[in-house]
Amino acid sequence: MGNICCLLDACTVISLIYIDSDGSLLKRMKKVEIKINDFVFSEIKDNVYINLNSQFNSKYINRNALDNFRKEIDQRLTFFRSLKNDNEELLRDVGDDYFDRISCYTAYSKKRNGELCSAAYALYLSRVFEKKVFFYTEDYPARMFFSRFFNFQQIGHIKDTVDFLILLYWLDESFSRRMLENYLSELYSHKILPVVGFKQVLREFQSTKVDGRFARENRSLVGNIKELVIKLDNLDFRSINGHLDYFKSVRKKHGVFFNSIEKFFPIFELEVGGDSPSLLEKITHVNDEIKKNQIFKWKDIFPA
């Protein structure tokens, strides 16, 4: 792939770990140059096991299968660990305040996180190694935010996990369309299961905790939950971070509720602006599209 480099975000790596049922996807990644920022890798380690309980329904857990899958995750993490940089080394090169400078330049208001470090690392890779960087993330709000930075600085592009799977598909002759469909199906399931789980938790809260007294004393919380449930029901992810901000603002007052929903926060990365399709819509759309239209591999462009 010459001077193109794929920089992966934590959510993308976690998805790749979960959808790679037989480990063959990892092998296919060896065809491209992949980088992961140090900070992102820490996020991956912190969050990669969270999905285990939803994947293995906690009540009917098959211990052996759970242990085996945990071992597989550990093995896959070892693979991704080998792709990460060392931020201490990076900062020795470009100065301790590098991430702060990029944060300031882009006017990023959130505290230091994987997306900011990746954007800064992408600029470094671009300028020092003269690479075109494709940053793959499922965090659509971050994608919207950093797109201008990537475009204006001519660093490369911000894409998502679906685009990464398609890249791996056309690069590899042995990667069949059927396999791509299955990975997309795995990805869809992986992303939507937490949405279904979140909706269940919110509905459970509505039916068990919201009585007359609670509704009267906590009108805005009740209203927020109702609105969010309707949005999730319709897979409408527009402006959902407004609900997250509200829940964070009442964290002290409703600690038990907040703790019960905290594990679902990655869902808020599905937020989209305007009429843009969500990641889930994109998966469905691409899955339909590849059945109708061919994605050319190199040999397909030559006459038979």
């Binding site: 939803s54 994947q55 293995f56 329904n57 098959n62």
Partner: peptide, 14 residues
């Protein structure tokens, strides 16, 4: 309907 990784096992156990 089980949503986990092993739906048939879950049905069996339930």
């Amino acid at each position: 309907l089980p949503k986990g990784k092993e739906p048939v096992y879950s049905v069996f156990i339930s």
